[in-house]
């Protein structure tokens, strides 16, 4: 079986590893690096639970090979820092999670959305729903997730509560 040397930055740490050509990025993160916050919900690119950021863009780690991450920068849910704090707080306060299995994927997708939105244009509910529609939540009916992203994106209420 082809073994491929890779060098990848994950959550700010550089890793050099040799991986099987067929190893998915998700399995690399979970099995090799023990970063189990990246969850596998479907392994065919639909549910979004395994979303990670690769060079700042969201990617389904089940559809990308570890070998393809060579030379790139990967951020998993464990690597989201201060920039995701308001989002985490709002998701908790607005009950945007129940079982929490899909939550890491939503955090990644929403973080990307919020970063992209630095134009300052207010987020709309329809826009947020569209942006999150590649992540499936089976527990919450999405209401709390959408509210949390809107609240952080438009900086509403956060200040009132502070």
């Amino acid at each position: 079986m082809t073994e491929i040397p890779i060098e990848v930055m994950v959550n700010g740490t550089r890793f050099r590893r040799t991986v099987a050509g067929r190893l998915s990025l998700a399995d690399f993160l979970r099995e090799e690096l023990r970063l189990t916050g990246t969850h596998l919900g479907c392994e065919h690119g639909v549910c979004g639970a395994c979303s990670v950021l690769v060079d700042g863009r969201s990617v389904r780690a089940c559809l990308m090979l570890a070998a393809q991450a060579d030379g790139r920068e990967v951020t998993t849910v464990e690597g989201l820092g201060a920039e995701a704090r308001p989002l985490r707080e709002c998701l908790a306060r607005r009950h945007g999670l129940q079982c929490g299995f899909c939550t890491p994927g939503f955090l990644i997708t929403a973080t990307e959305l919020l970063q992209d939105n630095e134009s300052g244009k207010p987020l709309t509910e329809d826009g947020v729903r569209e942006a999150l529609s590649g992540n499936i939540c089976r527990c919450t009916g999405y209401q709390g997730i959408v509210e949390a992203v809107l609240e952080v994106g438009n900086d509403t209420e956060t200040r009132d509560d502070a």
Partner: peptide
Amino acid sequence: MARVEDGTLLAGQGRFAADAAE
């Protein structure tokens, strides 16, 4: 109000069955 469960799950520190397979 946030739930007791939330902090761990939001941090990606949940322990689901697959995470117990090490």
